[in-house]
Simulated scan of single mutants.
Amino acid sequence: MSFNNLDALYRQVIMDHYKNPRNKGSLEDGSLTVDMNNPTCGDRIHLTMTVKDGKVEEAKFDGEGCSISMASASMMTQAIKGKDVETAYKMAEIFSDMMQGKEYDEDIDLGDIEALQGVSKFPARIKCATLAWKAMEKGLKENE
């Protein structure tokens, strides 16, 4: 697949997650809650997760922001559901490396998240893409 076709496909995946977000909403009763924002662009996220026996059983988000921020939150919640906490942290590390343009561990399938690779070329947008991931890490650390 040519670069232009791949780029177009990635844009489609990002827009699909933005227009049809997965796991939008919030959880009640005993869930972890994290609120974070990116003051430079106004993105904000309200992330709720249910963690039991070292596993992320459920994750939902609400908030507002650019297409990259909201698509990343949708992809992240979809990716971590059902994963153990250690794997969720590893996915956050891989995502961070990808956003910095570094080589990253491909042992874990990132699925749709790979569509955000191109964000690394736009330093001003990296904070948009990483907001949900930082919220997830913060919530898991507070839960330890």
Rank of each mutant, 00 (worst) to 15 (best):
M15R: 06
K121L: 15
T87Q: 04
M36F: 04
S74P: 13
L140K: 00
D35V: 14
F3E: 15
F61C: 13
I45L: 10
N23T: 00
M49D: 06
R125L: 10
F122S: 10
P21R: 02
G25T: 06
A73V: 07
H46R: 11
K60M: 14
T40W: 08
G101H: 01
A88T: 01
R11A: 13
M15T: 06
A124H: 13
F61Y: 05
K24S: 08
L6R: 11
Q100R: 09
L27H: 02
D16W: 00
A132T: 04
E106H: 12
L131M: 13
D112C: 09
S96H: 11
F122M: 14
C66H: 05
Y104C: 07
D112L: 04
D29L: 13
Y89F: 13
E93I: 09
G101W: 02
D53E: 15
V85F: 02
E57N: 12
K19D: 14
T87K: 07
A8S: 12
R125K: 13
E137L: 12
V119M: 03
S96W: 10
Y104A: 08
V85W: 01
M136V: 12
Q78N: 14
C66Y: 02
A132L: 09
T87Y: 02
K127Q: 15
M76C: 12
T77N: 08
E57I: 12
E142V: 12
T33A: 14
N143F: 13
S72P: 10
S67M: 14
K102L: 08
N143G: 09
M49E: 05
N5I: 15
I68C: 07
S69H: 04
D112P: 09
L9T: 08
G65Y: 02
E58A: 13
Y18G: 04
A79H: 07
I80W: 00
A92C: 12
K127H: 07
K90F: 10
S72R: 02
I14F: 02
T33Q: 11
N5E: 11
K141V: 11
G42K: 02
C66G: 09
A92Y: 04
R125S: 08
L27C: 00
L140R: 00
G54Q: 08
E58M: 12
V56W: 01
V119Y: 01
R44S: 15
V51E: 02
E103I: 05
V56N: 05
T33Y: 11
N23P: 04
I80Y: 00
Q12E: 15
I94A: 03
G111D: 08
I14R: 00
E114V: 09
A115V: 07
P39V: 07
Q100H: 14
M99S: 05
V85R: 00
M15E: 03
A92K: 03
R11F: 08
C66A: 10
A73Y: 01
R22M: 10
I108P: 07
G101T: 03
M91R: 07
K81P: 09
H46S: 11
